[in-house]
Simulated assay, not measured.
Amino acid sequence: MASPTAADAERPGWDHLALSLDSAEAVDALAARCRDAGCLVSGPRTTGDGFYEAVLAMPDGTRVEVTA
């Protein structure tokens, strides 16, 4: 197994932020706006644990998970 690169190394900090919106429709609307802006990473979709979510990327690369 190859040794991790500096980008892969564990470091203090957070992986992502998570925000709960009012509804699946709100997640869809925000995901559509982010898709148009080029910052939608994935979704919207229903996850294996039952959340409806989309994942967005901030300009600095921080991921934001929005759920309903």
Results as ranks from 00 to 15, higher is better:
Met1Leu: 14
Met1Arg: 15
Ala2Phe: 09
Ala2Glu: 11
Ser3Gln: 13
Ser3Val: 11
Pro4Val: 14
Pro4Ser: 08
Pro4Gly: 09
Thr5Gln: 03
Ala6Cys: 04
Ala6Tyr: 01
Ala7Ile: 08
Ala7Gly: 08
Asp8His: 05
Asp8Ala: 14
Glu10Ala: 11
Glu10Pro: 08
Glu10Tyr: 08
Arg11Trp: 02
Pro12Arg: 03
Pro12Trp: 02
Pro12Leu: 05
Trp14Asn: 13
Trp14Pro: 10
Asp15Trp: 12
Asp15Ser: 12
Asp15Met: 14
His16Cys: 12
Leu17Pro: 09
Ala18His: 12
Ala18Trp: 04
Leu19Asn: 09
Leu19Ala: 13
Leu19Pro: 12
Ser20Thr: 14
Ser20Met: 11
Ser20Val: 13
Leu21Pro: 04
Leu21Val: 10
Leu21Arg: 03
Leu21Ile: 07
Asp22Met: 07
Ser23Cys: 06
Ser23Asn: 07
Ala24Asp: 11
Ala24Tyr: 00
Glu25Trp: 02
Glu25Pro: 03
Glu25Ser: 07
Ala26Glu: 03
Ala26Gly: 02
Val27Gln: 00
Asp28Thr: 05
Asp28Ala: 03
Ala29Ser: 06
Ala29Met: 01
Leu30Trp: 00
Leu30Arg: 03
Leu30Ile: 09
Ala31His: 00
Ala31Arg: 00
Ala32Gly: 07
Ala32Pro: 01
Ala32Asn: 02
Arg33Tyr: 06
Arg33Phe: 07
Cys34Trp: 00
Arg35Lys: 10
Arg35Gly: 10
Asp36Gln: 11
Asp36Trp: 03
Asp36His: 06
Asp36Met: 08
Ala37Met: 11
Ala37Lys: 06
Gly38Val: 06
Gly38Tyr: 01
Cys39Glu: 03
Leu40Arg: 02
Val41Phe: 00
Val41Arg: 00
Val41Pro: 00
Val41Asp: 03
Ser42His: 07
Gly43Tyr: 01
Pro44Thr: 05
Thr46Trp: 08
Thr46Asp: 12
Thr46Cys: 08
Thr46Gly: 04
Thr47Gly: 13
Gly48Tyr: 11
Gly48Asp: 15
Gly48Cys: 10
Gly48Ile: 08
Asp49Phe: 05
Asp49Met: 08
Asp49Gln: 07
Asp49Asn: 11
Gly50Val: 08
Tyr52Thr: 06
Tyr52Ile: 08
Glu53Ala: 13
Ala54Tyr: 01
Val55Asp: 09
Leu56Trp: 03
Leu56Phe: 04
Ala57Phe: 02
Ala57Leu: 06
Met58Pro: 10
Met58Cys: 15
Pro59Asp: 09
Pro59Glu: 06
Pro59Ala: 05
Gly61Lys: 04
Thr62Glu: 11
Thr62Pro: 10
Thr62His: 14
Arg63Val: 15
Val64Asp: 13
Val64Gly: 09
Glu65Arg: 13
Val66Trp: 00
Val66Lys: 01
Thr67Ala: 15
Thr67Arg: 10
Ala68Cys: 13
Ala68Lys: 07
Ala68Phe: 04
